[in-house]
Structure formats: structure tokens, C-alpha cells
Amino acid sequence: MTAINAAIAYESRDAIALITITRPEARNAINNDVVQGLHEAWRRFAQSEDRVAILNAQGEQAFSAGADLKDLPRDVWLAMPNLSVPCDKPIIAVVNGFAVGAGATAVMLADMAVAEEHASFIYPEAKIGAFAGIMGGFAPRMQYKAGLEWLMTGDPMNAQRAYEIGLVNRLAPKGQGLGVALEVAGKIARNAPLVVQAMKSISRSVLPKSSTETYYPQRVMLDRIAQSEDQKEGVASFREKRAPQFKGR
């Protein structure tokens, strides 16, 4: 297992990428290290020979307690699977305790999920008056009425209910979630990768997206322009009253 940074580890095992949040002492709360580490992990996975990724977390208490109030993450969308880094390879989340806020959002955006039987899903934004908007894309990924009740009440949802409404694929006894996910990932990894990737690509192309999901890829493009040498050159040439020399970078 290789540490990407202080909060995220990456391991390749039999064509399966194990991506692990390593902050059990903070209930795997999402801080800036988690955001940057997961973003790098998604990039590494997309470019690797690994065929399936599993997102899991250390400890028994929490998959993620959500945003770290002691180190509020910037650009939390960078940490989300299937959002900041396009990838046609499947991603499986393993929930081994609480999945709160942005942690629950990561589970929702993963392609599949395994939850241990003691797991609990909490989305408290309606109770605290904050909403980033990404969870607005829940409707194609779980039953609409049940999902909307969960979001609007802010009440915890147990693993059994998450399974019933389609947020998770499988339930596992405590401590066995990763093993179940590895079993599923192994079956997928042994199948024809081009077919598996085409299945995900076509399925996602017809999956309705929230406005937030549509906006973020555009934001990546616009941020790249804003930080480019060409933009600096354009401003400088305007001030110096000369023709710009753009380089496409």
C-alpha cells in the first residue's frame, strides 16, 4: 500500500485498486488532504491498468464523518468518484460505519456500494441550512420518494433501508464489507475490460444528471483557462497594446 499523502493510500491488487481514507482518528472526516489525495487517486486509477476500484476507509466507526470542521475542505467535489475525473472503469464504495454528508455523497456517486450491517447514512444539510448541491443527483440512483424523505428530514438511514431503496448493492456482516467488495470486484476484473467499460459508459450516458454534475466538468475547463499562461498573456498584451502570442497552455 502506497501513501498518496497523509490521508489517502493506494494499492493495486490483482487488477483492483484499493483506495483507502486513512484518518480513523478523525472518523475519516474529509479535509483538504483527503480531497487532494482522493483526486490524485482517481487520476491514478483512470490512467492505470487496474480494472476496478474500491473506495474504503480505515477503522470501524466511520466510512466518513463528512467535512472536517477543523479543516474545511476547499473544492470537495474533487474528491468525489465519477465527478472530477472521468472514468469508465467501475468504482465500488465500502461503508464500514457512519457515512455523513459528503461521505454519503461519495457513496451515492460510486457505481456500486457494499454496506456493513451496522452502517448508517446521514445527510444533515437540511437541518443545518447548508447544501452544496451534489446530492441533488440522487434521484436516478435510489428510489425518489424514499431518497427525498431521507434528504429532507435529515434522519439517519440504516444499512437495511439503504439496501431496500437501492443506495447500496449488498449488505455484509461487520468487518466483512471489504471482503464482499473484493469478491465482487474480482469477478468484474476477470471479465472483458472493454465490455465492462462500455457498459458503464453507455449506462452513465443515459443516466440523468443534476445541474451540479453537469456544471463541474465545465468548471474544470474554465478553471484551466483561468489559470492558463494564455489568459495571463491576453491580459498582458491588452495592457501593453500589442498582439497576443498564445501558446495553448
Rank of each mutant, 00 (worst) to 15 (best):
A198C: 00
F45D: 01
I92F: 01
A198K: 07
Q143K: 15
W42I: 13
T105D: 04
N96D: 05
V34R: 03
F246H: 06
A113E: 05
I16A: 03
L109V: 02
D14P: 00
A198G: 01
A119R: 00
E11Q: 13
I188S: 00
I54E: 00
Y123G: 00
P208T: 05
D155T: 05
L171P: 08
N32K: 09
Q58R: 14
V180G: 02
M152F: 08
A62T: 06
Y123P: 00
A17D: 06
L69I: 12
A93R: 02
A46D: 09
G37S: 08
A99M: 06
S48I: 06
G66W: 07
V94Y: 02
R74P: 00
G179S: 12
A110Q: 02
K89A: 02
R224Q: 14
N28D: 12
C87A: 08
L194T: 10
D223V: 13
W150P: 09
A104Q: 07
E60V: 11
G66M: 12
P140G: 11
P173M: 06
T105M: 02
I21H: 06
A198N: 05
Y215G: 03
P140K: 11
R23F: 03
A53G: 07
A53P: 06
G129C: 11
M152N: 12
R51N: 04
N158R: 11
A126I: 10
K241M: 10
A15Y: 12
I134F: 12
R51A: 04
A6K: 15
K174N: 12
G59L: 09
M199H: 04
T22S: 13
Q231C: 09
D71H: 09
T20N: 07
L109T: 02
G179F: 04
E49A: 14
N82C: 03
E229T: 14
G136W: 00
T212C: 05
A15N: 15
F138V: 13
R242I: 13
